[in-house]
Each structure stands twice: as structure tokens, then as C-alpha cells.
Design a protein around this nucleic acid. Sequence first.
DNA 1: CGCTTTAAGTTCGAGGCGAGAACAAAATGC
DNA 2: GCATTTTGTTCTCGCCTCGAACTTAAAGCG
Lengths: 391, 391
Amino acid sequence: MPQQMKTSADLRVHNQTRLLRLVHDADEPLTRAGAARLLGIGRNTAAALVGELEAAGLLHEVPAETTGRGRPTTLLLAHPDGPVAFAADIREDSWTLARIELGGRLTELETGEHDRTPMVFDEIRGATRRHATDRLASLGIAIAGPVRDGRRLHISHLGWDDVDLGEHIGDEWPTVVDNDGRLAGLAEARRGALRGTGTALHFHIDFDIGGTLLLGGDSQRGANNIAGEFGHMPLTGSSLRCMCGVQGCWSLDVGANALLRRFGQNPGYGAGRARGREILARAEAGEPEACRAVDDNATALGRGLGALANALDPEAVTLSGLGIDLIRLRRGLIEQACAEALMRFRRADPPRILAGTVGEIGPLRGAAEIAFDTILSPGWLRTRLQAGPSM
Amino acid sequence: MPQQMKTSADLRVHNQTRLLRLVHDADEPLTRAGAARLLGIGRNTAAALVGELEAAGLLHEVPAETTGRGRPTTLLLAHPDGPVAFAADIREDSWTLARIELGGRLTELETGEHDRTPMVFDEIRGATRRHATDRLASLGIAIAGPVRDGRRLHISHLGWDDVDLGEHIGDEWPTVVDNDGRLAGLAEARRGALRGTGTALHFHIDFDIGGTLLLGGDSQRGANNIAGEFGHMPLTGSSLRCMCGVQGCWSLDVGANALLRRFGQNPGYGAGRARGREILARAEAGEPEACRAVDDNATALGRGLGALANALDPEAVTLSGLGIDLIRLRRGLIEQACAEALMRFRRADPPRILAGTVGEIGPLRGAAEIAFDTILSPGWLRTRLQAGPSM
DNA sequence: CGCTTTAAGTTCGAGGCGAGAACAAAATGC
DNA sequence: GCATTTTGTTCTCGCCTCGAACTTAAAGCG
């Protein structure tokens, strides 16, 4: 249990956590007075909270420009020596490492290629070591496969069958690993088109579909951290057998693999992605067969979204990857198919279907968020406040 | 926003809320010393918290029987003049009203029949008025249809199309209305087979399937409180059109309607339920055609469960209604079909499929839980502590 | 039977927290 | 140049939980 709040000391840490979260989540730098108003606390209390956080090297106050009458206040910024998180995104044959500070400013540090073995984790550890300072507090990693219990990886197309990440992660830094589609959704919920939604869904459409249910800005993880394989539900009546071992998966009809199959090409990875995009381009240019392939893709997408909306009642649905192109090219078809799959009484108020706004950086951003979730927790903060800025 | 905790006064209310929740959720009456240990607070603090709660008429301390060495302590019981919740379950043509006190003790008060119009809410209000004392603090109502935003009802088989409950509910008592399947699931999560699970699913199988996703003991409600129509996802490849307006719904293959259709009978309500049970009985007696119908039902059930498990990764799944019979008669078939619909890497660790243990009283129990959730909230408690027991 | 042990209850002082009031300070605007 | 507005600062107050010390009430045991 995450240390239930009980004492007045817990209360202070709790309020400081709320304050830091507010600063981290804000679009624009907050003023101290503004933050106090948002938290509903007095100016005196805010001064005390911020003072301790500055002393602990977590916040930095700088004079704010005056905007009107009244005594000028200060802006709450990330402390120049404050904790930072590193985030890594492991794609098919490359990876990116970035540094994120409080407030979300992201700096790319290094990218590299990898040999499609779990050695990529050691590479990332090496890169982290190259860039790490004592400011590094937490490392988040996004990878394209289900991560059971946060440490056991299953990626069939890389031939990773139940790879235990324990030894690959090491213990130099607190490290969290999660699925890239889920993290992309988390990024939309925290800093993208799903901001402020209570219940939402996000789907990343690449060769197939991965997604996540977002509740109050957090992604639903399931009992074993392997929730989100929406693409492997039989939502479109396909009679094909999927690589996952199941018949009729939604992913057989949506995504690059579905486009490729239409043209007699094998489901693929690597170069297959370019061929998928080529089909989209041909459809955009008006080639009939490509158009029909994209039509079918969009229709199947919409049907699945409608079915899921019946069960989960999302306020909005965001898409990333190919989904962004499908929205651009076939919004009408998607919405129509979705409406037909919606129960009648829902059709007057369908979920909004939106293109994600975080972009390709989504998994990286999401990895940064889960890394910062470690930092913005009462437990971490309590330790830091006791240990001082040199922690 | 539910009144964020900020001050030390909030802290006390927070701890008192935790204490009351502990008492409400406990199987056996708790001792004061035991509760203090569970909450991780000192005996002195516990004495202060309990003292105030007793003075506010929320808890009652009685001497506990000594179990071993040491000074005897007291048992924390519901106060004889403490707040109670009423819960109502509206079934097809009848209703039940019950009284629930802190700790969960449930007393049936009255049952009646109704004319299948929204007037049933007025009847329930009348019955509530007959039994109400000033102890009544909250009323929870379970009903067999989606309740949009907690007040707009859609029940196609009763011809209720977007019925606004505002006027029917009145404002004599705080009243919450929700879907019966969801409430049955909540009952399993709070007091049944799903107790202690982090992520779970519950399905009530009657004529069709309704369900809910349970996260940390709470049911997921969706953006408009109409989540849970899992039965209206196309999980089994049916080509039939469902009454809900969608093609291929899972509910077309699972539940009493699917059994009836197999024997050329129309999907029904009322007497149809008995005919469905009769088919189950004939299958149990070994009649081949009935057996096949039940086999198909069980197989379709399992397939859907597997598909949903891929997406939501539940730790366990409970069933109520016909689901209990299907588990009893065809557990093997359900589990086999579920496994086949699970992605390969999940098959070694499938979700547990369990019969619900709360029984037919599930919706009523769940309605009691949401009614008590009102009472066991910091806001309500704060008011009560200020107003004294006469509130 | 009386002493020891155990587990609770009780009392009291210490330390911490946020609220609120009063005042000071720093900007704008007329 | 003075009133206005907004924020920072200081100080007191009430509230909370904790921990230590002590008391109380049972069981165990010789």
C-alpha cells in the first residue's frame, strides 16, 4: 500500500506533492500566488511549501514579469540542480534516449540502432551512464510489446518470449518499463488531446493495434500489467488466424498488416511500414484498389471503436500512428462505421474521435511521465526532503 | 472535485472516514485496538477518533469478549441510532426495498409489483416513506438498464427511452440510481468473490449480458455512466441483428435469449426466463438438443471472456444469473473456449472464472454499497460531525 | 492466592501543520 | 503623488497525531 496519509507531516508532503504535480502538469510556468489559488491554500502556506522545495532543490523561484497591478510574484520553475528523468523509446531497430525535467521540457540525448535482442537494454543503460549526472532520479522505458508485471517481455516479432528484464534493467537507477502504445496513450492523457478527460481510449495503429483505457489521466494496467491488447479482440468478424494465436483479431483488419495483405504482401515489420505508407499515398492519389483497402481499414477501425465504446463509454478516443492518416483521409467512414456499431441509444452522443496531438514522440513522453510519477510521489518526496538536495 | 484534503482538520475527518470504511467492510466486528493496528495509528488517537464518532452517533462501542491475555477492548459496531441506507432493486415486474446499516447488515423491508412504467420510482418512494426514520441517510436504487449520467434511463424492453428520473427521484433523500449488473459486480468486489482483486470483471447473464470492469473495488462508470454493455460487442461472430441496433452482439449467443432462439422461441422477458431455465434443466437431464444449446452458450461465453481478457487483463471474472449455472454445468467448455480466445502468451495464466458468491441479492447489495459510499465520504462525515447525531 | 505477563486504555507534553489577521511591500493607474 | 491592487511576511491560534509514561484489566502460573 502506497503509504496512507495519517499524520500532519504526511499532510505537508501531500500538499507539496500536489504543488509539484501542478507545476509539472502546467502548460505555462505557474506563479507562486497562482499555484496557491489553484491549490486553495493561503499565500503564507504556499511560501512555506515552496521554500522547503527550493531548499530541497526541487523548485526554483524567479521573479515573474508583472502583468498588472499588485506586488510582483515569482515563477515556479524546475530547479537547475533538481531531479530529472530519462526516458527511452525502443523501436523496432532503433532507440532514443531523452532527458526530461520538471514541467516536461524534453531534451533528446542520443539515438542508436540495436540488434533486436534484449541487449538493447544494456545499450540504453550504457547511454544513460554516459549522460547521467547525480540529477538523474528515474528512468522510464517504452517498448513495443506487453511487459508482464513490469519486467517480463513478450514480443513475438522479435522472438522475445517471456524475456526477464531483471538483469537487463539493473539497479543503478529506479527503472520502469512499459508498453509503448500504453505510454503513447498516457502522453495524450497528460499532455495531449485527452487532457482533462475522465474516461478515454487511445489506440496506436502500426502493423496492428495496441491501446489503453485512460481513467482520470492514468492508464489502466490490468492485473499483470498486460492490459491493452484491444487489437486482439474479434471485433470485425475476420475468419483469419492471427499471429497471436487467436482467430479473427481486430488487428487483422486494421493497420499496416491489413493493408499489405490486401496487396498480397506478407504481414511485415521493418520495410513493411514503408510499403504500408505507400499504399496510403496511392489511396490519397486516388488509385482505386488502394482506396478500397484504406476504406476497409477505416471501416474496420470504426466498427471496433463503436464496439469498444459500447463497453467502456469513453468521452473521447485518440489515435496515433496510421490512425492519424486514417482520420485525415477517412474520418467520415470511421465515424459512420463507429455509429453503426454503437447501440442505438448512444448514437446521438458518440465519443469524439481525435488525432493524437503528441505525435511520434508519444511513447517517449509517456515513458517520461511514468518516470516522473516516481518522483512526484509522497514517498520519494519525503526521502528527498529529509536527505536534502544532495540526494 | 471531492474536496481535496488540505488542513489538519481534514486529516482527522480523513482518518475517521478510513476507520468507518474499515468497520463497514470488515467481515467480523473489529475491536478498537485491532482497528488502530490496521490503520497504523496509536491507541490514543484511535480512542479520540472513536470517541467523536460515538458522540456523533456513528459508531457504538460495546465491551468485547476477552480472547486471551491483556486488558479487554471494545467492539466497534454500528450505532443503534446511526445512519442507515435504503436500497431498492427494481426487477422486471417487481421491486424490493431493504435497509442496510454500517457493517452491511441487510434487512428486507418490503417487496411489491409494478406496472413497468417509471411510476415504480414513485412506489419505491412511497415505500421508503413508510419505513423511513430520521436515521435514513441515503437511498440507492438498482435497475436493469443503462442510467446515463445517473438520471436518464434507457430500457428498451420496457419501452423506456431516455426517461428522466429527476422528478421521479425527488429530493426527500439523497438518491443514487445505477445499473443492476454493475451493482451486482460491485457487490462481488466489495463483499463477494472479487474481494481484494485489483482488476476484475463481472458479468450478469440473464436474457443478455451486462457487466462491469472493477478496479480496486470500484466499478468503472465511463464518461456518461453508461459503461458496461459488454454484451453488445461482436465477440462471437454472429450475423444476427440485435435489438440494440447493432449486428453480431455477444448477447445474441449467450444468455436466455440465445437458448430460447435455439428452440424457435422469441427472445423474451417475463415467462421467457422460466423457459430458459427449463432448457438448462433439460440439458442437465441429458436431452441432446438442450445439451447442444447449452454447449454453444458456454462456448460463446468463454470466447467472449477470452477476448475481453486480452484487452483488460483481469485477475478474475465472476458471473451471476445464468452464468452460475453455466459454470456449474460447463466449466470445462467455458475455460477451453476462453483459452482459445486468449493470446498465446496469456494462456499459461488465464483469469480465474468464478461463480459470484453474493447471489441474487447482488444488485440490492450493490445499491446498498453506493448508498453507503455517500455516507462514508469525508464531506458527509464532516457535516455530520458538526451537526451532531440529530442530523 | 498472589505475582508476573500481556495487551489495552489514558493522560500529557511535544512537534508540526495550515488558517487567518494584520501589516508591509511593490507594482499600476488616475 | 496618492489611492488601489496584489502579493509577500509575520505571528498567533487551533487542530492533529505521536510517543512516552503510567494505569488498568484480563490470563497464566507456581
